[in-house]
Simulated scan of single mutants.
Amino acid sequence: MNVGLYFGSFNPIHIGHLIIANHLVEHSDLDQIWLVVTPHNPHKKKNSLLDNHHRLAMVNIAVEEYPKIKSSNIEFDLPQPSYTVNTLAHITEKYPDYDFSLIMGEDNLKSFHKWKNYRTILEGHDIYVYPRISKGHIESQFDNHPRIHKVDAPIVEISSTFIRNSIKDKINVLPLLPFNVWQYIDQMNFYKK
């Protein structure tokens, strides 16, 4: 089985995440997409994150209607901060019959050469890249790389930061979230302060 790993803090998960995940699983050779809830991204401040279990709960309810999209808490018990190369080694050992690929936005590909052991990642895993509106240059070493697949997915420019700030400012964000996720956020009074 070919599984695409879509890493994120999902703070909160929104329709943009689901649009991209669903497009990739339906229009590529990926059999499933796992939304990997990251406990602590080394490039983000931890204090802005909801607790791990709340973000995982939101992902769980967001994917209920998508049988090819699953949630994953694989990084919860790994040393922090989480580095993709370590997670890939762990998940490959845990699921030896699966082939794991990475899913990332074009903006992340531009800085991929700065990731810890990025060459090791490329040796063992394909990368599916979805388009983003962004400036800057992608390293030429990634042009026509046999393991990097650019996918003609819809460009979705919705950010979790925008959603959190809008909720704090009492702005309606219902169209940007799966309804059951919006209900969870509202009932738990998240992001209001």
Rank of each mutant, 00 (worst) to 15 (best):
N108S: 14
T87Q: 07
S166W: 00
T84W: 04
I171N: 11
G136T: 15
Y191V: 05
V173A: 01
I61D: 00
N52L: 09
K110D: 14
M1Y: 01
H14A: 04
L102T: 08
L18W: 01
P39Q: 05
N172R: 04
S72Q: 02
Y95L: 05
S140K: 12
I103C: 05
K135W: 06
I13V: 15
I171T: 11
F179K: 08
F162R: 01
H90W: 12
D107A: 14
N86A: 13
Y191E: 06
Y128W: 07
H14R: 05
I185L: 06
I91M: 00
L18V: 10
S166A: 15
I33D: 02
V181D: 03
I185W: 02
L50R: 05
N144Q: 14
T161K: 01
E64F: 01
T38R: 02
W34H: 12
H43F: 15
A89R: 13
K193F: 00
D97H: 11
I121S: 00
V85H: 08
E75L: 06
N117G: 05
P131G: 12
F142G: 09
M58S: 04
L102E: 05
R164D: 10
S71T: 03
K110F: 13
L176R: 10
N60A: 06
G105S: 14
L174W: 06
S166R: 01
T120E: 14
K170G: 01
L18I: 14
L50I: 01
I15Y: 04
N180C: 10
L122K: 04
I74H: 09
I91V: 12
N41L: 03
K45L: 12
P39M: 05
L35Y: 02
E157P: 12
F7G: 11
F162M: 10
K116L: 11
D169Y: 02
S48Q: 14
I138V: 15
V3S: 05
G136F: 15
F179S: 07
P131M: 13
M1E: 00
V63F: 00
F162C: 02
I171A: 07
G124I: 02
I61V: 13
H149F: 13
D31T: 09
L88Q: 06
S140E: 13
F179C: 03
N144A: 15
E139Q: 15
V181Y: 06
Y66G: 04
P154L: 06
W182E: 01
Q187R: 09
P131V: 12
N108L: 15
Y98R: 08
S9T: 15
I20S: 08
P79Y: 08
S160D: 04
N108E: 15
H43R: 12
N86R: 09
T84A: 08
K168P: 00
P178V: 08
R132T: 10
V151S: 06
N52W: 00
T120G: 04
Q141A: 14
Q32D: 08
N172E: 06
P131T: 11
N22T: 07
E106V: 11
P67I: 03
H17V: 02
G105A: 13
H14F: 00
